[in-house]
Amino acid sequence: MTPLLEVRDLRVSFPAAGGRTIHPVDGVSFSLERGRTLALVGESGCGKSLTGLALLRLVPPPGRVDDSSVIRLEGKDLMSFDEAAMRAVRGGRIGMVFQDPMTSLNPVLTAGDQIAEAVRAHRPVTRQEARARAAALLGEVGIADPARRLDEYPHQLSGGMRQRVMIAIALAAEPEIIIADEPTTALDVTVQAQILELLDRLRLERGMAVLLITHDLGVVAGRADDMCVMYAGQIVERASTRQVFEAPAHPYTHGLFGSVPTIAGPRERLTPISGSVPPPAAWPTGCRFAPRCPERFARCDSMPSLRRAGPGHDARCWLTGDEA
């Protein structure tokens, strides 16, 4: 089955000081299948949010998506679309849920207005029809008394409700893919589970593909079918969630697990990864994780490609098996 979305060699360029160019997203490749969730995991600054924006070609200027990137949606390359065609894709075929619903919702418009706007942007419906559809959507995302909430402003809603509204907006035009960029980071823990639950349910009901961008491994476990780990603009490990959790192949992934506290099991000392993520201007020419890697050796001075660690499991490290 051809993947719904196929991303090959996605590269985003930004002009830097001194006339140089940096690539916060540097040759990322993955694919999304219908009905499955792919998690894009990494620390802040690794380029995962930018990847999500790049898919919709919404990279903020002066950044731009390199022409060499390939983003194939059901076989058609989005890089060749003009602005009008992209506008049809945005929301119509790929929807996006943003991180902070307080700032992602227009404070001077009601919830109903904003959902209706998403509806009317893609379908020629009347104002009343859009409003009815907005009410229905609010019900679908689990908001009680949707008719009243339609006329409320974002500041009158709780954090969880705002995020549900955002999801409703993303769903309004019935897209096939949802990109959720840190959908729960700004929420309380109790609400987090509800939102993730909701996303799952909607994915199954509508047969959508979900790209879940997060830094929280706890969110990934149990929600994502597959995951990609990103570091310094590159994908360093790619496999099904189970495979990564059971046997992480990349030292960085290893380090991530080691630095996550667990409630179950004996109380062990946390082993954080030493150092911090280097900025794009300071990336080494070789393996970008090498300066912080406890397993570093001489070969790491040259950039490794994604190598096969197992069936359907790749890692960008000289320590793994053969070439992918």
Partner: peptide
Amino acid sequence: GEDFVRAAEALGAGRLRIALHH
């Protein structure tokens, strides 16, 4: 630079619509 403008772009709103409505 506000997020909701980006969000509006993400849902497919055109430039004119964003200018007038948001």
